[in-house]
């Protein structure tokens, strides 16, 4: 870890002032400190925002507002989330461990960085870590890498689970700007594709601080979060799917699907949702959904399997979520 200046902010203004001066906000720290120890992240200053009042899960009309500092554990244990947004609780519980979720926060989890092996090895070229240095995952061992939306500059994946569920739920990220304003960004638009600037994981601008994530009114329907991984717990997703599907009289009334492990961002393809709506579930329909989802998918060698794995997992999820079995 490089030396840094440490300051604690007690309110949002104070935090914003310090971040505008270049300090990195630290909350749970479970990802940032991991990266700082490896000197992948080398901030000169940290601002500890743990005592900024951004906690709490509060209803706002039909919506539910999750404070940026609400821990993953608290979020997954919240009665309203368990009842009305089970896909979110399930996704959170699929990630990491109780210890990590007790520290990891809602905002921090959204901002967690890729687990790309080459991003983690500071001796290797990596455009995300060091823009312009190249991508050593291309042509290397890329089992956990992207098959959708990658670029020549970067094939890293977003590693999280929570944001995949938030994408399916079409939640919104609430951001305090450096100028003291608030702006809202749909989670579906919060993370970026790598394009030619993979150093930017998301659309946060310098000095901006996430203040909350807002869930829309409970969508109803059946919620499923499926995570395929190498060991049964404490492993990142090879492929994951969040699905919220409501049936009406044997047909799909609404569908929202999001995918983890496939891209630089939690993947949402509205064409897939649209294809399903109004249709009677069938294997042929599920195959069509997979065709659409994976149209243009490209493997990079060791991750080729993700394409058939996404297809098969999608079928499992759609069978489950549209089936009669409760």
């Amino acid at each position: 870890m490089k030396p840094f200046e440490y300051n604690r902010a007690n309110d949002l203004d104070h935090a914003a002032r310090l971040t505008s001066d270049g300090a990195r906000p630290i909350a749970g720290g479970t990802n940032l400190l991991d990266l700082m120890k490896l000197e992948i992240e080398t901030p000169d200053a940290l601002v500890d925002i743990n005592r900024v009042p951004l906690g709490g899960i509060e209803p706002d009309g039909d919506e539910l507002r999750i404070g940026a500092l609400v821990t993953n554990s608290a979020c997954a244990a919240d009665e309203r989330i368990r009842r009305d947004y089970p896909v979110l609780a399930r996704a959170i519980l699929a990630g990491a461990t109780f210890q990590l979720r007790n520290k990891a926060t809602t905002a921090g989890n959204l901002c967690q960085r890729t687990r790309c092996y080459y991003f983690y090895n500071t001796e290797m070229p990596c455009n995300k870590r060091e823009p312009g240095s190249g991508c050593s995952a291309i042509g290397g061992f890329n089992r956990i890498h992207a098959v959708l939306g990658a670029s020549d500059a970067c094939i890293a994946t977003y590693p999280g689970d929570m944001a995949v569920a938030l994408c399916a739920l079409n939640a919104t990220v609430e951001i305090a700007t450096a100028e003291g304003h608030t702006r809202s960004v749909p989670v579906r638009a919060f993370h970026r594709l790598p394009d030619d600037a993979p150093e930017r994981d998301n659309v946060l601008e310098p000095g901006e601080v996430i203040t909350a994530v807002v869930l829309p009114a409970p969508p109803g329907g059946k919620h499923v979060y499926r995570k395929v991984r190498d060991r049964s717990s404490y492993a990142f997703a090879l492929v994951s799917i969040a699905a919220v599907v409501r049936m009406d009289g044997g047909a799909i009334a609404s569908a929202a699907l999001a995918f983890g492990g496939l891209a630089h961002k939690p993947w949402h393809d509205e064409r897939v949702d649209a294809l399903l709506v109004g249709e009677v579930p069938s294997d042929a329909l599920f195959d069509k959904a997979a065709d659409l989802l994976l149209d243009g998918a490209q493997g990079h060698g060791t991750n080729d399997f993700k394409i058939p794995m996404a297809r098969r997992t999608l079928k499992a999820v759609l069978r489950e979520v549209t089936g009669d079995a409760e």
């Binding site: 687990r115 092996y117 983690y120 956990i144 190498d230 060991r231 049964s232 717990s233 404490y234 492993a235 990142f236």
Partner: peptide, 12 residues
């Protein structure tokens, strides 16, 4: 590291 070298966890 122990995140990507997968020794079995309790649930395995």
């Amino acid at each position: 590291d122990l995140a990507e070298y997968h020794v079995p966890v309790n649930l395995d």
